[in-house]
Design a protein around this nucleic acid. Structure first.
Lengths: 188, 188
DNA sequence: ACCTGAACACCGTTCAAGT
DNA sequence: ACCTGAACACCGTTCAAGT
């Protein structure tokens, strides 16, 4: 008889860092960070948990770093035709949406020691302002303040921190925009 | 023979929620959030881990909520003699110091569903501005933006996200102040 | 090279029992 | 009322082994 490859291994996309991160993100988004487990992650990839270590030798640490990199690294794309204020407003809206869509990784974004992702993002903001004619120092300050604001706002929004008294609900979209304007109008 | 109380139980301060939270904070500050364990916490209180459940029936969830409440609930104290801008500047400096001193709980502050602590804080900021003559809506927006900025900034600072290029180090104090001014000068 | 299976040292939490 | 001890179901990770 001709040898048959095992059914399990057949036509199964081979494991890759990319696929692992995506599966992990799916678990975090769907069930929360607390349920992201090496064993559960293995299950969802139809593989034993230990197979993951072949692709991520540093284990769960590396997995979490990968999630941060995947979510938090989103530089502004500078279109020369638009005013820098509008470019930053567009970026801020996108970034907020991104963080809200993956709220489970927010605690990781906030404390993982993974400079690369956020540093690239903050650098892109600074560059947008520089090209728009903002002075070096002011651009550096505003870039940091802007990213800080967006991250902090998302943290408050995701927790629903904001009843004005007890009954009046918060219009998060409006509040986000208003706070953003507060910041941007100060920049020269 | 007269009965002797057991040596272990003698002259030992009885367990209390307060003492448990403080011990937990000591572990988080000294060793990091990842090393906060019910068993280790028990050890540091010279008690079996399971004794903690008598005071915190909801277990570790309740413990983490307690840490957030302890660290994140720090309203501004309004001194009528000072300008509201200076009151907020003082509060911001304190709050930043507080979060930096307990950086390990930052991920909890950012995502735990515990409105009370942050809501009280944001309400106090709004009140300071209201009494300073800022309009209702503007005060609500600015209060949220201010807390968002301070939390976000601390998150970036604690991670050291900010090399301007590769070599130039960031003066976090100066940057924090400058970003704060950016925000406050926009408020009327 | 890539994955598995068994094993180890640890978790959070329950439950019955002690005082 | 307050704490203990044993137990349970789960973790992350190692290591030798399979193909």
């Amino acid at each position: 008889m001709v040898r048959q490859p095992s059914i399990n291994a057949q036509h199964r996309a081979p494991l890759s860092t990319e696929r692992i991160i995506e599966a992990a993100l799916r678990i975090v988004d769907g069930q929360g960070l607390g349920r992201l487990t090496m064993r559960r992650l293995g299950d969802s990839l139809e593989v034993e948990a230990m197979a993951i270590y072949h692709h991520l030798p540093r284990g769960k640490e590396q997995l979490l770093d990968g999630l941060v990199a995947h979510v938090a690294s989103a530089p502004a794309d500078d279109a020369p035709s638009r005013r820098w204020q509008d470019v930053l407003r567009g970026w801020a809206a996108d970034y907020r949406g991104r963080l809200m869509a993956h709220a489970g990784v927010l605690p990781l974004v906030v404390t993982r020691r993974n400079p690369a992702a956020l540093t690239a993002t903050v650098a892109s903001l600074r560059e947008v302002m520089r090209r728009g004619g903002v002075a070096e120092d002011a651009a550096a300050v505003a870039a940091h303040a802007l990213l800080s604001y967006v991250i902090g706002h998302t943290a408050l929004e995701v927790r629903g921190t904001g009843e004005d008294g007890a009954d009046r609900a918060v219009d998060w979209d409006a509040r986000f925009q208003a706070g953003l304007d507060l910041l941007l109008t100060g920049v020269r």
